[in-house]
Design a protein around this nucleic acid. Structure first.
Lengths: 228, 228
DNA sequence: GGCTCAGTTTATCGAGCGATCACCAGAGAT
DNA sequence: ATCTCTGGTGATCGCTCGATAAACTGAGCC
């Protein structure tokens, strides 16, 4: 291996990676760069992070936009790998426990500088993938949570939650989400114990849902219009 | 007035504004542009919106950064003109009513595409003015709300709220804020009745605060059991 | 009328951007 | 040892950016 070492030093930067390795390295470092600088971050700055030259990027991606799309795909799909259905819908465990664990796991996945910044940057661009994600949170998380809450409260499990219920869940979810924004985007001091924050938020959400469920049995809630 | 009209049309673009007018026009249109495009929006695009040429900007602002700072100043100070102290601290009115009215007025001020986008863009840049604003929300809104809540619950009005209380208030506040983000940044469907959303959020926050205050008398802040 | 001065434009600079093309170099097969 | 294939580089193009300097212009004043 190292017999017959030539006088000329080997390049400190290890070059000549396999195509797959180099490609995924581009995506990884691009995620870091774009998280910090926004998607205006330059291809030259990206190449510098890899220790390669800028044109090399174009051997792996037709354009910067394609690289960005790859970054989206990776970032948006990251938190989906944690098996939500089981955590939320396993009725052999108490609802309170399920919700606590789900939000601890979910926030473990998305509460970091990289994910949150990419998410907000792409949200500001108004991309389809962002809308898709928001819709997925609604359908796969909030709707499911509400269904479990209704079941737990002994209410009829209707197929779709009411607009008011959904909004309640959104405000709850958004409150937790905003904890991450405060900590990792604003870098503001927050209550360090994340699990405690989730627990407290859950307390008031569940108490609020109960109250709402109770009053719903007495008098019917007025239907509330939602724009599409 | 229109006798003896010369052949050559008068310039459609009204030029030669007074210095003050032109300057504030720059700030106004820059706010709109940066809200849409982010602060990467170009000075030429800005000039086009005013119907003038790009170098004119530099007669009014030494650099683009100075213009941006002016935009911050205007945007961040906008919602401060609504007299918070009176709305929150006027104990002649019921707490619930004060909070409802405050959040309706406050969200009227900040829930619009322009404000929210500028706010998020500047938040992502991690600027001092953003930290200042977050600190101000904490000191001038949340701390005040908590003090009023403690007073209302017959608890001792301590000078500063506990970290857990503050976090509770932040999650509540963040949940409401996130409503605006969902509507104006994500452009997702939301419960159209903003007052209703605030009312529901207040219900669960106040109920949660009460419970927390009750259990605080036991020197114990155990998670509240949900009756099923 | 002619002077003045402030608001505005024309022309241009240097730097950085994304992207392209011809070329280089080194590991593996022969 | 030489060939070949492919990962990687150097040079450069066209464009846009923020910023500067000099020239223009039109309303108000004498």
């Amino acid at each position: 291996m190292n017999r017959k070492m030539p006088v000329k030093r080997v390049r400190t930067k290890q070059k000549r990676l396999s195509a797959d390795d180099r490609r995924s390295e581009f995506v990884t470092k691009a995620t870091e760069l774009f998280a910090e600088e926004g998607f205006g971050g330059g291809t030259r700055a990206l190449a510098r992070r890899l220790g390669v030259t800028q044109p090399l990027l174009y051997r792996y991606f037709p354009s910067k936009d394609d690289l960005i799309k790859e970054v989206y795909r990776k970032v948006y799909l990251e938190p989906l790998e944690i098996g939500w259905e089981k955590l939320l819908s396993d009725r052999s465990r108490p609802l309170r426990v399920r919700l606590q664990e789900f939000y601890e796991v979910y926030t473990d996945a998305i509460f970091n500088r990289r994910w949150l910044r990419i998410y907000l940057y792409s949200g500001l661009k108004g991309l389809d993938i962002n809308r898709w994600y928001v819709g997925m949170v609604k359908d796969k998380i909030l709707t499911r949570i509400l269904r479990e809450c209704r079941h737990d409260a002994g209410l009829a499990t209707q197929s779709r939650p009411s607009a008011a219920e959904l909004e309640l869940a959104w405000v709850f979810h958004g409150g937790i989400f905003y904890y991450g924004v405060r900590k990792y985007i604003y870098e503001a001091p927050v209550l360090e114990d994340k699990a405690q924050m989730i627990s407290d938020a859950l307390d008031i959400f569940l108490a609020g849902f109960e109250r709402m469920a109770e009053s719903a049995t007495d008098r019917r809630r007025a239907p509330i219009k939602v724009v599409g």
